[in-house]
Amino acid sequence: MNIFRLAGDMTHLFSVLVLLLKIHTIKSCAGISLKTQELYALVFATRYLDIFTDYISLYNTCMKLIFLGSSFSIVWYIRRHKIVRRSYDKEQDTFRHHFLILPCIILALLINEKFTVKEVMWTFSLYLEAVAILPQLVLLQRTRNIDNLTGQYIFLLGAYRSLYILNWIYRYFTEQHYVHWITWISGLVQTLLYADFFYYYFHSWKNNEKLQLPA
């Protein structure tokens, strides 16, 4: 464990808790894409298959349970909660996320480190996580206004993966044989997708004005 990875995990944890707290307290999911949340639940479900078979550390298991629990709770809130579901605008959240899942499955079957069920599922979860934010970014472009909690949520999500890139660089230089091209490339693609959001987020913060994405 190194400081970059710990900071990345804490940032990631904080992003999902910010979102869960927002939905739970103001009983609204306005501006949140259910599709992105469903994709994240799928990412965790396919990545943490080994939670019951391979024990790595108490920290690792606890964090996996928290991520699984929070992502499925968020999906439940938006789909089932009688008040929250009313604030979900399904007309705007129209990104066909099934078009993301199939290419990720095919890519995971073609490009992986080892052709085993667990490894292919793990690779699928990496590719899917890289593109999971797209429905949310499209929704933001459409609704144009971003309430600051949603903005913070997306900022933290992007920041967590950027910290993970620093972690991979650190591990590459400090550990023998630590080479995971697939992880590195999908993590880089994921962070680049946030780049333009970061640009507008930083400028709105610097000019202390409401965050507006260009049409």
């Binding site: 990875r5 995990d9 990631h12 080994d50 391979d54 790595i56 550390s57 690792n60 964090m63 996996k64 991520f67 480190e113 080892k114 490894e119 793990w122 993970y164 972690n167 044989h177 630590y178 992880t183």
Partner: peptide, 10 residues
């Protein structure tokens, strides 16, 4: 190459 080190990251 050695067996893929299990994925110890989240």
């Amino acid at each position: 190459d050695d067996d893929i080190a299990e994925h110890d990251e989240l």
